[in-house]
Nucleic acid binder design. Structure first.
Lengths: 341, 341
DNA sequence: CTGAAAGCGCTTACAG
DNA sequence: CTGAAAGCGCTTACAG
């Protein structure tokens, strides 16, 4: 390993002046600049960032803790933060918490010990206490951290409620009145919000809420299929449309509908949530509510970076908008057709 | 920031003994162990890994450089390496190279400067020279590095050729003789291998190779759609089955087939490659060749970790097997039906 | 403009 | 068993 000392020796100057030319912060005699640069070149010297960071307390690294990169929601988000980090010459630690408070906290501490300048936690699970402690050790932004007690932190959220409202409104607009809701049980916070929005929107339209049209299910496509079958197979009222808590589940639901011998969207309309990559690709392409996943990542990272560079101002709470993406799984209600308004 | 010095002071011992109890490598008087532990607890002391790494030359961090986490192939691979890293108490830097040799090299250097103990590069693009230099600076394993000149490196590959052969054989078994090939142009290495295997397998069965049945296309689903339309719309021979270079493309191809008013698999069979998450979920579910993505990641990481712990033995070249996953996009050839052998 | 020196927070012989 | 000291590779006042 070639160190600054070697460069200094070869260039016939002190390590101080080598450091000076490398950081460009000091005025150095041009002749020496050249000598140093030549020596750096000749030796192929590259500064040791560990040493620099130890000295300056700046690591140019940030951490990202997400539930699971394998969940189609997260690659885009991760890409958003990586792009922002890259632009700013930062480097990214990636950690999968598997929605476990313990693993999340373990990683958070590991990153602190590695002296990241800051970290982003998506859907934080650890305690408020821990989050507070974390904030003492590095900059922190929470993404999808929709708990009300999180007010004192920087937050980048998505407007789940509004998104769910537009989904249900879309279905209503297409003449559906018997609208079911199927949501994953695990995603507590966001699933809850979507369910609440579903109820509220129906209420707005004077449509009674019927619990028989609501199913909670496991958080993978099989869960969606099971729920759809249970729904269509029960004695209860039959929906003409289903609003599903997320796209993966929606694909399971569609599968379940097919298994019951029904068609989408001719017999039953389906609207998802998230707009993951395959939603555009599936046949029929999934009508869904798009979350700006990349933007959540990018903006979280940019906010974090800004905090790192100059810890200014007060806490920011940003909530990003969703948009409904109309594709091919929603059609007019076969029961009573009305015009879209 | 509370440091070892603070702990030492509070516990009334030297930093040397604090260090001793923390690493458990030294025999320390039990009474002192307790005092130190108590002080650690009281102060909430956590060792600074930067300092430790600087001293010991061990960072317990590794890097992963992949083309793009947003490509559905990579999340699983990344998860494989992350899991292995986590097991070994390592932490992971994630970098997206976008298949750019420059960005890849930039990241490789950045990671070296941050003193990762090793790194995994997937589908390496930088020069042999650079790779060699890298190997001087840290442990290195290449995944999907199928160039012949890479022999001197540790390699974890997938048997693309065999996979492609089984795909074509599957199609042949189902009676298809007019088999087209559509492959992305960008994935040079692997796409080439798949094309070669396609040709070789046809040759084995005395089926003449017809370039009119081959299309190269852009590397996204739209490219697949365009290629399929061009194929089905041209004056040339019409295929009864299409072997597609990867699953994303295959979904585009299926879309293109539908756009031409044909059905899958009744009119045209389609076999993909990769087995990404949505292949199982799509309707009809995609018949494809599964690559052990998670295993590529896990085994790459495990090999790397082993190199880091004890640099033993000689170079390892491992090639993992594929398997064909029969689902619903391949059926008997409508032209001439024969029995599967 | 430059060099010598202290110090970032650790670990590790070494002497006792 | 313990402490003092050197050193990992940098940066940063400070004196000249």
């Amino acid at each position: 390993m070639v160190s600054m000392k070697d460069v200094a020796r070869l260039a016939n100057v002190s390590v101080g002046t080598v450091s000076g030319v490398l950081n460009g912060k000091k005025a150095i005699k041009p002749a020496n600049v050249e000598k140093v640069l030549a020596a750096v070149e000749e030796l192929g010297y590259r500064p040791n960032m560990l040493a620099r960071s130890l000295r300056t307390n700046v690591s140019n690294s940030i951490g990202l803790i997400i539930p699971d990169i394998t969940n189609p929601y997260y690659p885009e988000l991760a890409r958003g933060v990586e792009d922002a980090a890259h632009m700013a010459n930062f480097t990214l630690f990636l950690c999968n918490s598997d929605r476990s408070a313990e693993k999340e906290w373990y990683y958070a501490q590991a990153l602190v010990q590695k002296k990241v300048d800051g970290m982003i936690i998506v859907k934080p699970r650890c305690t408020l206490e821990q989050l507070k402690r974390l904030k003492q050790s590095c900059k922190l932004v929470l993404a999808d951290g929709t708990d009300s007690e999180l007010e004192e932190f920087d937050l980048i959220n998505v407007d789940n409620k509004a998104g769910a409202v537009s989904a249900v409104n879309l279905l209503l607009t297409y003449g559906h009145r018997d609208i079911a809701f199927i949501g994953g049980i695990v995603e507590s916070q966001s699933a809850k919000h979507r369910l609440e929005a579903y109820q509220a929107t129906l209420a707005c339209h004077n449509i009674p809420y019927r619990p028989e049209l609501v199913r909670e299910c496991m958080y993978d496509w099989r869960g969606g299929r099971v729920a759809a079958q249970s729904l269509l197979t029960s004695n209860g009222p039959k929906p003409t449309a289903i609003f599903v808590g997320n796209d993966i589940l929606a694909f399971g639901v569609i599968r379940g509908i097919y298994d019951c011998g029904l068609r989408v969207p001719e017999d039953i309309s389906v609207c998802g949530f998230d707009d993951i990559a395959m939603s555009e690709l599936s046949i029929p392409a999934l009508t869904t509510v798009r979350q700006p996943k990349y933007e959540v990542g990018r903006q979280s990272a940019e906010l974090l970076l800004q905090r790192i560079q100059t810890d200014s101002s007060e806490t920011v709470h940003k909530v990003l908008d969703t948009s409904v993406i109309f594709r091919n799984t929603v059609s007019r209600s076969p029961i009573r057709k009305i015009y879209a308004d």
